[in-house]
Amino acid sequence: MDATILLILVQDGVVNGAIYALLALSLVLVFAVTRVIFIPQGEFVAYGALTYAALDTGQLPGSVWLLCGLGLAACVCGLWQQRRTLTAGATTRLVLQTVVLPAAITALAAFVAPRKPGVLIEALLALAIVTPMAPYLYRVAFQALAEASVLVLLIAAVGVHLAMVGLGLVFFGPEGSRATGFSDAVLSFGALTVQGQALWIVGLTVVLMGALYGFFEFTLFGKALRATAVNRLGARLVGIATAQSGVIAFTLAGAIGALSGVLIAPLTTVYYDTGFLVGLKGFTAAIIGGLASYPAAALAAILVGIVESFSSFWASAFKEVIVFTVIIPVLLWRSLRSTAVEEDE
């Protein structure tokens, strides 16, 4: 192996690692706030990529119908859960969020898609279509279980994941898609060639991490999410509703997943079930970070990306095996280091 190949592999690893880092961050976020291990994270990646790819070819993506359906389901669940305490204002807000919003997004997509408005608008539209699905899922599947154990929430998350993979097949079909990149520029730094898309991925990841840091550190809502993660009862006692925090955390996770999908769509062919493996690598990184530390998860994600790119060079048949094996020494080390059994709460 010479230096050129080494550089290419490291570059590849960092670019993939950046995506895994985003996913790991959102997994840590969702777990800290709601105690849900967000297995369907990967489906948001696939949905984001496929929605963006469909818009890129000038078609109305099938996911808009799923968006409308999930919105309606969330509306029904919301009305049922709050049936005793419902006020006119709350009902209006709920209907606006779960029925009017998806209808408006669908109408906009139907109007814009055939006109091929260019990658930036298409990417934003894909985000607008996929992101709201996450809070709708929270209302439908997780809100009523908010006080359940981590295990029950995990089972619900697996259920949602399986349902979303199936729905992905229905709405996107079995064919894979690939989309136009944000930039086809190719830059050369000596021996190293960097694609414009790779720079977009790393750049957006850094910007997004900065934005998340700012959100958690400087805004009252960000602090409210942290407070929920630190002490759930304390947060409720100051009036921070568990459901509200859950909706915000899921929205962020949905947006991050969809954005990751939009970013990888030009690099690789994405199928309806591709997301799971991508999400699982983000999950590996999040586990290495103990599902608690954001910086540790982000660093671990870069490591996962680099291990992946090197193992696909040396032993591509065992690529996934090697990546997921990384988790074993970490789990061993963690279990040896802590003697106490971790409790649910």
Binding site: L220, K223, A224, R226, A227, V230, N231, L233, G234, A235, L237, V238, G239, I240
Partner: peptide, 17 residues
Amino acid sequence: ELFATMSVEDNLRLGGF
């Protein structure tokens, strides 16, 4: 039931949520 890893001021500000 304080927010142990957050500052005194943040705890108070969240009290006014």
